[in-house]
Amino acid sequence: MTPGGIVTQLVHLALMLALAPLLVGLVRWLKARLMGRRGATPLQPWRDLLKLLRKQPLLAESASAVSIAAPYLALGATAAAVALVPGFARGMALAPMADLILVAGLLALSRFALALAAMDVGTAFGDLGAARQMSFAALAEPAFILSVLCFAILAGSTNIDAIGAVFAEGGPGLRVSLLLALLALLAVALAENGRLPVDSPSTQLELTMVHEAMLLETSGRYLALWEMQAALRLMLWLSLLAALFLPFGTAPAFSGVFGWAAGLLAWAVKLAGLAVALAVFESATARMRLFRVPEFLGAALLLALLGAVFLFLSTGSA
């Protein structure tokens, strides 16, 4: 655990926390521009969060301690996952723990906490959202793990840092398997973050909601925590995609301030690019019917499996 590792880790975490709402705001603003509207400033999510924190929360009479504790747990788990995913630098202090399966587990933990909070009050919408979210996750998770399989074969490890290092050196080169894994991971990312076409992040129609349906009963700082958790999750996924598929320009932790600056720049460019891509994609797609979502995720699962099989064939099955 080098000093450089600790410093980069702290900077990384601070940046992630600070930038997550901004990223959400940025995507919203870009989407609005693409649709010909002026759009709110990218700072708007931060303003909303601070406003919510100042308000007095209102809890339902039937709410239990779960409603109070779950947001902290969910945000804590997401933040822990975020701390593990490399951003601008490699070899951060927590890099040895940065395991892809653990990240999946932490995301599952926050998902679980969210679903619990949704069920706490005992409303139709909360239950419905929780049931749908867990069902989608049931397909998203194997697709994710199968993508991990591709990385594990190519890099020999499931550690994100190690994978990034191997890929940055261009070890595996361009492979059709990686393309398939990328497609699968993109689908999973869309589903996990409740983006179009799986779930609309800005819908007002309760019947079609998944994520928002679970938050109908929350308010005040609890709502702020959930919003922050969602933003952090988006951040996490974009960073993860960047770390796995665009590992170029990431600064090693020992490379000093200038190296870090270069890494930061590269990271900002990557994130911005991904945000633009997301905004463009979301503007161009419609939300699919709820029961088409399994087919969407099933296709992702099959793509990932196909990627693994291609990999077996191309590595010549030893």
């Binding site: 924190l53 100042r54 308000k55 007095q56 929360p57 209102l58 809890l59 339902a60 009479e61 039937s62 709410a63 109070i68 009050v121 005992g122 409303t123 139709a124 919408f125 309760e206 109908l216 009963e217 005040g220 700082r221 702020a224 925590l225």
Partner: peptide, 17 residues
């Protein structure tokens, strides 16, 4: 949050859409 958002939660009937 205990520092920044000290308001105790109020209780009310469930909204339930």
């Amino acid at each position: 949050l205990r520092r920044w958002s000290p308001h105790p939660a109020a209780r009310g009937p469930v909204w339930d859409g």
